[in-house]
């Protein structure tokens, strides 16, 4: 069969499929007068076009013909096999089931990350508390003074350098904290070393500042400030580190998979944790900017809300989504 004849014989099928795909693509933008093709018809045309492509290749038909069929099958393939992951349903399922489940599935990593974060924090915190000059080996002197002012009783809003508005701090917290969490996750690609570093570094820093301020007698302002959003923020940092460790572990010990394949699987499973982490840090940023810093809220209220937040976060991570199918 000559190429021209081949084209004449089957072009109607190709045109029909091309039009159907075009209509699928424009579905949302314009009202359609024609009834769209049924899925069965599209699948039938697609399979037929696949055959035509195989024939055209086997017979070395002209490049333009093969190319047209190539593009047509590839477009149809994309339309038929793509799966949509966006939407409110998916979002609901993510936070109602998938995220807490992913955290539990990564329990060993979460425990390691917790230890790597919390142990340096406790040790450095106690060290600085008993030997305050040690704080200078973690933060420069100007910064130490700055922290002292930020949490002093005279400060207008707690935890701020000057008179920045709540909104400015909200923006700043989003940019910094979520950025740190993403870095903590991504640096897991350095066989986990990066995640360990970020976890320990943030632990040391938090411990040093907490020890220093406690020793200065500012504990009531400092702890009432941090304790509420810490429920979301510290947990989220630990979780992002755990996700990073998972990736690092997959690279170090891929098990029965090829290393690249193990990495793909680890990334696919741990990215779910990162979604949740981003959401938790968004909440943390809101609390830190609008609630924690407020002077007018009595400490007793703050501590109550904090206790509630911690319980809610821990319950959410341990119980939520256990029963859903």
């Amino acid at each position: 069969m000559t190429p021209l004849k081949f084209e004449q014989l089957y072009e109607r099928d190709w045109n029909e499929l091309e039009n159907a795909l075009q209509r699928l693509r424009n579905k949302r933008r314009e009202k359609q007068d024609e009834k769209p093709l049924s899925g069965e018809r599209i699948a039938e045309l697609y399979r037929r076009t696949c055959e035509h492509l195989a024939l055209a290749r086997a017979r070395s038909y002209p490049a333009h013909l093969v190319e047209r069929l190539d593009r047509l099958t590839s477009d149809a393939h994309q339309a038929i096999y793509q799966h949509r992951e966006l939407g409110l349903n998916r979002l609901y399922r993510l936070f109602a089931v998938e995220f807490p489940r992913a955290v539990r599935a990564h329990a060993p990593y979460v425990w390691v990350a917790t230890a790597v974060f919390a142990l340096p924090m406790l040790i450095i915190g106690l060290l600085v508390y008993y030997k305050p000059e040690l704080v200078l080996s973690v933060v420069p002197p100007e910064m130490a003074t700055m922290y002292e002012q930020m949490y002093s009783d005279e400060a207008e809003s707690i935890g701020r350098r000057g008179a920045e508005s709540d909104w400015v701090m909200f923006g700043l917290y989003i940019r910094n904290n979520i950025g740190i969490a993403f870095q903590c996750f991504a640096s897991g690609l350095t066989v986990g070393i990066g995640s360990l570093f970020f976890l320990a570094y943030n632990g040391v820093f938090a411990g040093a500042v907490a020890g220093f301020l406690t020793e200065k007698g500012l504990s009531s302002t400092f702890y009432s400030f941090v304790v509420t959003h810490a429920a979301f923020e510290l947990t989220a940092i630990v979780l992002s580190g755990a996700a990073g460790l998972r990736i690092g572990h997959a690279l170090l010990a891929p098990g029965r998979h090829a290393r690249a394949q193990a990495l793909v699987i680890a990334a696919r499973e741990s990215i779910v944790i990162v979604y949740g982490v981003a959401a938790m840090l968004l909440i943390a940023a809101g609390i830190e900017a609008f609630w924690s810093a407020a002077r007018w809220i009595p400490n007793a209220v703050k501590y109550t809300v904090a206790a509630f937040s911690w319980t809610a976060v821990l319950l959410y991570l341990t119980v939520q989504g256990r029963r859903a199918g």
């Binding site: 590839s74 393939h77 994309q78 096999y81 793509q82 799966h83 992951e85 966006l86 993403f182 870095q183 996750f185 991504a186 640096s187 897991g188 690609l189 350095t190 990066g194 990334a267 696919r268 990215i271 779910v272 990162v274 979604y275």
Partner: peptide
Amino acid sequence: NGLPITPAASLTRNLLRFADFLPLMYGF
């Protein structure tokens, strides 16, 4: 596999950009 990129994959490749950036100027 030639299919359109999924949200999870897009997020993964762009968050891990940070690791690609290491040690400096997209060295990795």
